[in-house]
Amino acid sequence: MSKQIKKKICLIGSFGVGKTSLVSKYVKGIFSEKYLSTVGVMISQKAIQLPDCEVLLMVWDLAGEDDFQGLRLSFIKGASGVLFVADGTRSETLQLTQQHIDRLGEFYSDIPTLLLLNKADLKDRWEITDAHLNDVESRVEVFHTSAKTGENVEDAFSRITEMMISPEERAMEAFL
């Protein structure tokens, strides 16, 4: 049995972009969603088996805030990765996400990040075009996801997990 490594990741995005739906699609057995509106975070866990080790992801789904100041930075501390989520049908959510990425970089510059453009099942209604994405794709890897169909959800979480496990940790696993 391979060794287990635990990692904390955060989901950040505006109201209604589908963060909680993505988490619900990805994991089972989460804490009640009522904590999202009370404490401001919903936490769930998911074990991922990588070739060298098992990674237990603790997923902190932060309450949607349009303003970065509204985010509790204390909830982000200690995170090994951040998933930004925007709604493909609302271009303003991408603009807000870009602001979030910039501000997060000021505090945590070396954390692996991904951008999930959600609601890929409604692509015919997307406001976000390739032109919108040119700038952001140069700074962060982008996944088109659908919490409804599950499209790319598993892949996105697997990708951020791979990015979080350092080469040293992998080497140590292989050695052990």
């Binding site: 904390k8 936490i43 769930s44 603790m58």
Partner: peptide
Amino acid sequence: DLVSSMLTAI
């Protein structure tokens, strides 16, 4: 694991 994270959040 969940309780630990939630305690820290609280």
